[in-house]
């Protein structure tokens, strides 16, 4: 429970971050959504042993975090919280792929370790990009962008409603859980039976709330269609943002920058 409560706190913290007014925040959400998707696509398109090729891509999160004034330590903490899945699936690689690919003095580095490292790098980049997107854009703006991208309206509305009521329902659920805990002694856990009944109650309340909301909507002329105030204006800077990053991604994807650097240095000391 503490975990979800934290996650819930995170949601509103992200909203605070997204409310800033840095140059990154002011970029049109469409440009940011598109750039983020391109970034992820580029990152995952590397082959599974890629390490050095991925490194230049860190420039994207680095720049976004700096200009966007985002708390790095907080984002890293979030990253570690969700790391276990990638870690536990990836950690098998070193045990399964034992072929030595590098002999480095007494050290033998196997393909498995390399691909494991690559998984962790990909994970950091892709998850980081998603977190940065939400922290620089805000959920409502992302939804407006999705609508512009022709995602079905019903789904966009669904996202907005869900987001609106998460806060209230989590509060209601925690009241139920607290009320049960206050009447439970000796640290007994919640049985499935009790949990089901709590969930059932919560569900009934939720459905009743949906009815009241629907009434409130009808009272203000709801006719099955929700009209949003659209205030997105795409400007030159937005094209520049998306285009510039796309160019950077392509360069980083197709030109092995670390190898160039390496050759350059090695060239100096032949």
């Amino acid at each position: 429970m503490a975990k979800i409560h934290h996650a819930f706190f995170d949601v509103s913290y992200f909203e605070t971050l997204a409310g800033q007014n840095t140059p990154v925040h002011l970029v049109d959400p469409r440009a940011k959504v598109l750039t983020t998707l391109l970034f992820i696509l580029m990152v995952v398109s590397f082959d599974k042993y890629a390490i050095s090729g991925l490194l230049p891509f860190f420039v994207f999160p680095a720049v976004m975090i700096t200009i966007g004034d985002l708390p790095l330590s907080y984002l890293l903490k979030k990253l570690f919280l969700v790391a276990p899945f990638a870690f536990f699936i990836g950690i098998f690689n070193p045990f399964l792929d034992k072929q030595t690919v590098l002999q480095f003095g007494a050290f033998a580095i196997t393909g498995g370790w390399i691909s494991f490292t690559s998984i962790l790098l990909r994970f950091t980049l892709t998850v980081g990009a998603a977190l940065i997107l939400i922290a620089t854009t805000g959920f409502r703006e992302i939804c407006l962008a999705l609508e512009k991208f022709k995602i079905p309206r019903i789904f966009v509305l669904q996202l907005l409603f869900l987001y609106r009521y998460i806060f209230i329902l989590i509060e209601e659920a925690s009241r139920l859980v607290r009320a049960r805990r206050l009447r439970t002694f000796n640290g007994r856990g919640m049985t499935i039976h009790v949990a089901s009944s709590l969930i059932g109650h919560l569900l009934l309340r939720t459905i009743n709330r949906a009815r009241r909301i629907h009434l409130a909507m009808l009272c203000r002329g709801f006719d099955g269609e929700i009209r949003l105030m659209r205030d997105l204006k795409i400007q030159k800077g937005d094209y520049l943002f998306a285009g510039g990053w796309l160019l950077a991604f392509l360069i980083m994807r197709f030109i092995d920058i670390p190898a160039l650097f390496g050759d350059l240095v090695m060239g100096l000391y032949p």
């Binding site: 409502r140 987001y163 409130a216 009209r227």
Partner: peptide, 25 residues
């Protein structure tokens, strides 16, 4: 109609969207 629980009445993502909901309809 002003409902008892404002959370039932304010269902849009921002205050502005919410106040605009009726006039837009």
């Amino acid at each position: 109609m002003v409902f008892q629980d404002p959370d039932d009445q304010l269902f849009m993502p921002t205050v502005r969207d919410d106040v605009a909901f009726g006039p837009l309809n």
